[in-house]
Design a binder for these strands. Structure first.
Lengths: 343, 343
DNA sequence: TATTAGCACTCGACCTAAATGAGTGCTAAC
DNA sequence: GTTAGCACTCATTTAGGTCGAGTGCTAATA
């Protein structure tokens, strides 16, 4: 059996109607809803076929049909193809550039949540290559040295190092020069034991400090890995009956609190994917607790190789059109925002 | 009518029983539960009195009684008085000192949540006096200066300042000395326009940079105000039927996401309050959406005048004993953790 | 006077049966 | 291939009925 044009039209109509009403769709509704001018009986026959093909499901005998995951997939694929041509932008979704990056990302998450009424997430961008850009030691007080570590993409971290004895200005200067000349431009993998030993030797009696600084650098670069995730609109899930029964809601809320779970959504295929927008429907989701949800994600990219992810999570019965539009809009705004002047 | 000893005993028994079962408590239950050896009829009379006094409530005719807010208040006050003597510590709630402060606070929130099965929050500590401790400008690359700002309590912030032309080492040194000698030890209020003008004059052609740095300092100190709040166990609210109906759950989840709302819980009475533990019951809560909850909070204090808050939020029918114990334990651990060696 | 036993009464919780109605599958006619 | 007609299914709603926990009140008791 094939999916001919009429079946396609009927399937589209069923899904469209279900997205709007949330109720199982009956044959009579379709008979009137479409311009096919077919009787409900004919529709019924076609629906039986569509069910056999796996696109729609009957929740129980004598109820209308609802889309299966496969049905949604078909619908979304068709829609994405449609969208490919028009590069429409939602005019009313306007992200303002904020002073602080974290404020802006939080803002982006919120904007998407308010606009779509779904739960949203935004990950902080991280550099594909974690390279040390700049290192600065300074004496804070007699027993503390402040180490400022800047890695590629202007991610800045600070560490306070305790020292037994105060160091004079000259020593500080020497250490700074030593560290910067040898370490700048290196990634954490490149800072190996041989290099460290060589540096320690050159530093003489200040070897232990070098060691501590390098530890801090490694720590800092690594720490950037457990990346920050901003979420918003979590409580939107209560707006959708299919998600708001206690067990499901609890699991979802938990996933949003334990942001760690959300990292599974982060796409690690390199950017070759043509800046694709990804849609996970129901069972396709990589996160177990979101089997009843659909997830739409996209990567954004700052000028200097920093990449992050934005995502919207809602019920399978989701306004895919709007969600994809919103994601696209926010993505493109983030993409261009830091293109010219960095931070 | 007075609250004599017998009434007190009965009231305590009612509340205790209700805390355990969650069901309205009937007269017969009390008649057997207590060692008063009174018939249910007598208890009924007493209960009618207690209701008249406002300590208990009948959800509907022909149901048992449940405590009113006033009843809970009575119970908690009595309990707190009891606790005053014993300074027991929960042995099994052990907070490990983490490298990073934010990790540790997150950990504290989680620990409390796991231990009590309620939702918890921990605010980052902030200094009562926001004083500039140390300032460091360094040249990051030709057109960017990195300003590192350390305020009292070793809160460190970074800002990148864009400059038109590259500055040489000597100028940088001069600016650093100029800024540090004049600004260190000052609070944001003390950095007034007169001082700024004087500094700008001394800096000559670099006046604009001075201005930007000072702006950044002001910004940084102010920004520390919109403080961070770590939450955990949010989804625990689903464990309590009285909170998990959709509207209430949604509101609560929202309050935990919009952490801003939680700031209302932060106690601004100065520490004179003898390190008191605060209990807000139902209507006493300063947060509208938590009228069906009880909230237990306490302030913790790091050695150097940094203060933060920990709190537990659960249903009114809460295990107050355990919650207060947990709060006390975590508080005292936080209190002592940074007493000797700071950060 | 305080306590208790007894009793009628209330009211939510739970169960069952019947009515409703949306929607189906199938068959026979067009 | 399409449609009208019809019997059938089944979730949802409504109404009625029982059950039992618990009360308030009254009269008897210590």
């Amino acid at each position: 059996m094939e999916l001919d044009e009429r079946k396609t039209k009927i399937l589209q109509a069923i899904i469209k109607n279900y997205l709007e009403t949330g109720e199982p769709v009956g044959s009579r509704t379709i008979s009137k809803y479409t311009d096919l001018n077919l009787s409900s009986a004919t529709i019924r026959n076609e629906m039986a076929d569509l069910e056999e093909l796996g696109f729609i499901i009957q929740p129980h005998t004598s109820a209308g049909r609802i889309p299966s995951d496969k049905g949604y997939r078909f619908y979304v694929d068709a829609m994405m193809l449609e969208h490919e041509k028009e590069v429409e932008q939602l005019k009313d979704v306007l992200l303002e550039k904020e002073e602080k990056l974290d404020h802006m990302l939080k803002q982006a998450a919120k904007l998407m949540a308010v606009n779509t009424n779904y739960a949203t997430m935004v990950t902080a961008p991280r550099s594909s290559r974690n390279v040390l850009k700049f290192l600065q030691l300074s004496r804070m007080d007699a027993s503390h040295i402040l180490a400022v570590i800047v890695i590629e993409g202007n991610v800045i971290k600070n560490t306070v190092i305790e020292v037994a004895e105060s160091l004079n200005d000259e020593t500080m200067l020497k250490l700074n020069i030593l560290l910067n000349t040898h370490l700048n431009g290196l990634s954490v993998e490149e800072i190996n034991l041989g290099l460290i030993t060589a540096l320690k030797q050159q530093a003489g009696m200040y070897g232990p400090i070098i060691e501590e600084v390098i530890d801090a650098v490694a720590e800092t670069i690594k720490e950037d890995e457990d990346l920050e995730i901003y979420t918003s609109g979590t409580n939107n899930i209560f707006k959708y009956p299919e998600l708001s029964d206690n067990q499901k809601a609890s699991d979802l809320i938990n996933a949003f609190e334990e942001k760690q779970l959300l990292t599974q959504l982060i796409d690690d295929t390199d950017s070759e994917g043509r800046n694709e927008i990804k849609v996970y429907i129901g069972e396709e989701s990589p996160i177990q607790t979101m089997k009843d949800c659909s997830i739409v994600t996209a990567n954004y990219e700052f000028g200097d190789g920093m990449r992050g992810m934005i995502g919207i999570i809602g019920p399978k019965r989701m306004d895919y059109d709007k969600v994809v539009g919103t994601i696209k809009t926010i993505k493109s705004q983030l993409d261009t925002m830091y293109k010219k002047d960095d931070n």
